[in-house]
Design a protein around this nucleic acid. Structure first.
Lengths: 138, 138
DNA sequence: ATCCTACATTGGACTTTGTCTAAGTCAAGA
DNA sequence: TCTTGACTTAGACAAAGTCCAATGTAGGAT
């Protein structure tokens, strides 16, 4: 994620303070913020950044394949900067914490041809649900 | 799903016209309506039914385990009456059509212990994405 | 270094999806 | 049939996200 800005500039991105700040907030692994959380953190770094810009920038990062959009709960979407390593998610049913995980096996291959109904199947998303150590410690 | 109403009455449900109509709309397999779609169809059968009641009833059916809540796109949740047969979903990336599918193998077992981070993993949801025959025929 | 302009940002209105509440209605047991 | 607590209703409210016209600015052109 560190040279993200350079990569994006190479792709014709105009490098504004706002985009820099959004990228900075997303930097770091194991981060799964909502758009509003990104906006809150971005505001600390650049007080006048607007919500619309955060949404725009996140949308662009998703289109460019630099960030993944994850919606594990039907509430706000979360943004996952770990787009360059295939992974799935483990979500705590109680507190909502998300961990990146790496299941064994070929998940796509698990779907038999006769269960594909003529679809060109391209991707698979897996969400494991359970109770995290913190919550089960009660 | 046919004797759903009887099952629910046995559990102390009060059997109102509104609930009957919502259950009737959900009846049938391979149906994955949004709450608003359920409301629209319910309105055809019982014009004075309110949005709040549809939401309430769907929520109750989910709590009772008679219907599954599916959110494949971060937009409106969809309601899946096929709750009594474990299955996963195959979604068309273009038109949003959803099919129930049955992957091979034990999906839960695919998550190694060292990838569970102390969670008590209880469930797994899989969404396959691709292009449906209709859309690829374009 | 300055200018230009197409692209980016802004604030606020608007939309979609869903929740809540107070008042009225009714299913079903007594 | 009466009663009562559960159910329903309309509409206000809330959360998450989109859209737009006006304004600002990054970066190439001069």
């Amino acid at each position: 994620m560190s040279d993200l800005l350079e990569r994006l500039r190479g792709r014709g991105w105009r490098l504004t303070a706002q985009r820099r700040v959004v990228a900075e907030v997303l930097d770091g692994d194991h981060v799964h913020y909502t758009a509003d959380e990104v906006h809150a953190k971005a505001t600390e770094l650049l007080p006048e950044i607007s919500r619309a810009t955060v949404y725009n920038t996140l949308g662009e990062l998703v289109s460019l394949g630099e960030v993944l959009e994850v919606s594990t709960d039907g509430r706000a979407k979360r943004y996952d900067p770990n787009a360059h390593h295939a992974h799935q998610h483990l979500v705590c049913s109680q507190c909502g914490t998300i961990r990146d995980v790496h299941p064994a096996g070929d998940l796509l291959a698990d779907l038999p041809t006769e269960e594909r109904f003529g679809f060109q199947v391209a991707a698979v998303e897996v969400t494991y649900r359970g109770i995290c150590p913190n919550c089960s410690a009660g």
